[in-house]
Amino acid sequence: MRRTAPLVVTFVVGVIMVGEYFIPHYRYRMITAELIEWGLVLAAAAFVLGLINLVQVNLPKVIRREQDWAYKLVMLIALVCTITAGALGGKDRLGDGQIYKWIFDFLFTPLNATMFSLLAFYIASAAFRAFRARNVDAALLLGAAVVVMIARVPIGESIPVIGDYLPKIMNWIMDVPNIAARRAIFIGAALGAVATGLRVILGIERSHLGSDG
């Protein structure tokens, strides 16, 4: 039962969801819409599961004062404060003057944005140290990158004579070789998704159910 029930659920839900594409009838879609809604709730619950796991892992380390416990304590305090502020704010939590909104605007936003902007510096470092035109393949890659980088910004259009052609060459790269390569990747990925989807629905692929599933 422990093995069979999940496989039955997988098959039934999978077949119903695939059928939605082929049966465009509103009664059928009432069923799939219901299943989708349950799926949305489950996806939301996964966040809470993650939260429980995070506390389970980090709280004992803080209590035992293991290495970097102070940082983990900061994390847990920030976590509790944010959840408390959100809970107290309720449906008005995103309104002006709310603590939760303040946390988002002045803590979350700068931290999130700056974390990702660090990559600009590491790309510069990689460009200098790693991008070498060692062979024709690498030279083509670098050539295309340089054309795109120049032509996509205003200075590319301002260069005398070639400035007229650079954006056209860039558009050609984007519209012809880029599309050819992307479509090949899309088609390959689509075939892979179809095959994996069928394996999951038919119960051939069971890794999501655990080692003894």
Binding site: E20, R29, A33, I36, L40, A43
Partner: peptide
Amino acid sequence: FKTGKELAIKGIGENIFKTFPEDIEG
């Protein structure tokens, strides 16, 4: 906001009222 990623998109395609029963104000 709605969680669920592709499922939410599918829900928007099928039935917005079911996917988003309420607006941000409740």
